[in-house]
Design a protein around this nucleic acid. Structure first.
Length: 609
DNA sequence: AAAAAAT
């Protein structure tokens, strides 16, 4: 259902009871002023530039029933002085029709870049040089599925729209990362996607760009709220609150001045502000599962109009702890089914069993794997040291002292210490603190306020040591983490991959040290393999350990023997024997149809095997 | 066994 401009105005008037109708729907001159009905469907008058092409009367085009724009498919962002001179100039004007007038009472959009007008140059100049692309040359890529759209080499090749291009420029993204080069064309083509790409390689943008551009381009008219029930067009789920916050912050930058509204909802924080944010209008909802379920049950959010579903850290979202909640959200509420909506799953790791679960959510999807085994491999120097349980603290102390002595030039370098338990985190933090190391901690027993404060304090270098449980293992992008210490190793090699991925991001180098002892025997083999694949020096004692502890591949063995970070489970006979022809199409690089034909079955090496 | 995620 599409709502007309008039409907929107009426709704706003009703709800806002005579208050002003805010916003650029009417052109900037009308912002925050009441517009009499007889003037409402007029094209904006004086202060908007002439539309880029003839005949486009963006004022009336907006008015409803999704009439295509006369001139450009792109509804330009609000004309704004800060956009001067970039690209082909602001054509169009005004907002696209999704941002209906029930979006009332919001002041001018806050600039998420914090660089009002032309202060850009001075911000973070030397440290925000963006991604080190040389680090990503010659990265192995595997795609499979029907008719995979070819990758692109530049953002310019992709029709993302002017406003988004401007934001990409402001983010100082010069060219797409490998995962972006491949996944964005796939998503823009409307295809479902399961993507496996290294930590720190730009996955957030990879799913945000197509969503934002799609919402702008396709002119979905957002459904007007029914009472206080709102209808987002895109849903992005993530496994931790802090990750949702981070995705929201990034997405807001990408969506700046596009008219696409991004709202975040997560637990542990007062729900009222989140409800107010939702009432102001939402196109993209970023959420953690629990709070979203709450919102759905309160009938404050409907998934009926969802066009895009993205799961970040998708394998985590579908593991034992989360799967029921995710199924509820995706399958048992009012979300459109696969094939109607577009679904994108992203993670650095993707175990085959989880791929099988995930395939329930997808329709004729493309599998994409970029890079090796999750980690940024060569960029992270991995060390493993044999440390008895009782020696861990003093050993950590030695590391920290050495680091201090080495003297870090420039920005304070940060150390992230992973432990197994929440209590252990508190205990270690306290111990570090009384020993003169400024540390803080983040884990699930702390209040949300404490968690966010800890993260800020760490990021700012105020507390350069952060002791964390796995709540911080995935997705968090913390610049200047020079060292990740696995004080307690995780039980699962994939968790190790995510943890060490907190360093060595965006093409920068990092160090990861693990304390290994007899309690970690079950991890020995997969750890040794992972390190070998990443060209790391594997200590002889670890190799001996792994030889000893291996009887045929336990739970931690990567199926297929590890190596390359992801393989499409549809190509693995043990996962689809005799059943559905999951993998029926052609594939890039693998030619023939039908399973893993062409000699690329398990055990056969290819360039990146 | 642990961690995370709603109140």
């Amino acid at each position: 259902m599409r709502s007309s401009w008039a409907d929107s105005v009426a709704a706003a008037e009703g709800a806002a009871a005579g208050s002003s109708v805010n916003n650029g729907n009417i052109g900037s001159s009308a912002r925050s002023t009441y517009v009499p009905p007889h003037l409402r469907n007029r094209p904006p008058s004086s202060d908007l530039p002439a539309p880029g092409s003839s005949g486009s009367t963006s004022g009336t085009d907006r008015s409803g029933y999704g009439a295509p724009l006369g001139g450009s498919r792109w509804i330009g962002a609000r004309n704004d002085s800060s956009r001067s001179g970039y690209g082909s100039g602001g054509r169009g004007g005004g907002w696209n029709s999704r941002s209906g007038s029930w979006d009332r009472g919001r002041d001018r959009e806050v600039n998420p870049f914090g660089d009002d007008d032309n202060a850009e140059q001075t911000i973070d100049e030397e440290e925000n040089t963006g991604i080190n692309f040389d680090a990503y040359e010659d990265i192995p890529v595997e795609t499979s599925g029907d008719n995979v759209p070819p990758p692109v080499n530049t953002f310019a090749e992709i029709d993302l729209g002017e406003a988004l291009n401007e934001n990409i420029r402001r983010c100082k993204y010069v060219k797409p990362t490998p995962v972006q080069r491949h996944s964005i064309p796939i998503s823009l083509a409307g295809r479902d996607l399961m993507a496996c790409a290294q930590t720190g390689s730009g996955k957030t943008a990879a799913f945000c760009f197509p969503i934002i551009s799609g919402i702008m381009k396709d002119q979905f008219v957002q459904r007007r709220p029914r009472g206080r029930l709102v209808f987002p067009l895109a849903l992005i789920l993530s496994p931790t609150r802090e990750l949702s916050i981070q995705i929201h912050e990034e997405a807001r930058k990408f969506a700046y001045q596009t008219g696409v509204k991004v709202v975040v909802a997560y637990g542990g924080a007062p729900i009222n502000q989140q409800l107010r944010d939702l009432e102001r209008g939402v196109d993209i909802l970023v959420a953690t599962p629990g709070r979203l379920v709450d919102l759905l049950e309160r009938a404050r959010v409907s998934l009926e109009m969802i066009k895009y579903l993205a799961l970040d850290e998708a394998d985590r979202m579908l593991d034992m702890g989360f799967e029921p909640q995710i199924r509820k959200i995706v399958e048992q509420m009012d979300m459109p089914p696969p094939g109607v909506r577009q679904t994108m799953l992203f993670s650095a790791t993707f175990p085959k069993e989880i791929q099988r679960l995930a395939s329930d959510f997808l329709s004729k999807y493309i599998f994409l794997a970029v890079g090796r085994v999750g980690s940024s491999t060569d960029l992270i120097v991995q060390r493993v040291e044999f440390v008895h349980e009782s020696d861990k603290r003093s050993h950590l102390m030695d590391l920290l002292h050495a680091q201090k002595a080495n003297g870090v030039h420039g920005k304070q370098s940060l150390t992230l210490v992973f432990v197994e338990t929440k209590k252990g985190a508190d205990a270690l933090e306290h111990w570090l603190y009384i020993n003169g190391f400024p540390a803080t901690t983040i884990h699930g027993d702390r209040t949300q306020q404490e968690r966010e404060h800890a993260l800020r304090s760490f990021k700012s270098g105020n507390t350069p040591i952060l002791v964390a449980t796995d709540v911080a293992a995935r997705g968090l992008d913390i610049p200047h983490v020079a060292h990740v210490v696995n004080f307690d190793l995780p039980n699962d090699i994939d968790d190790y991959v995510h943890r060490i991925g907190r360093t060595g991001r965006a093409g920068k180098t990092g160090l990861a040290t693990a304390f290994f002892n007899e309690n970690n025997a079950s991890l020995a083999r997969s750890l040794a393999e992972l390190m070998q694949e990443s060209n790391q020096e594997v200590p002889a004692w670890l190799s001996r350990y792994s030889a000893r502890s291996s009887y045929g591949g336990g739970k931690n063995r990567r199926s297929g023997g590890g190596r390359f970070g992801g393989r499409d489970f549809r190509r693995d006979s043990s996962f689809n024997r005799g059943t559905t022809d999951y993998y029926s199409g052609g594939s890039t690089g693998y030619g023939a149809s039908g399973g893993y034909s062409g000699g690329y079955g398990p055990g056969v090496t290819s360039a990146w095997d």
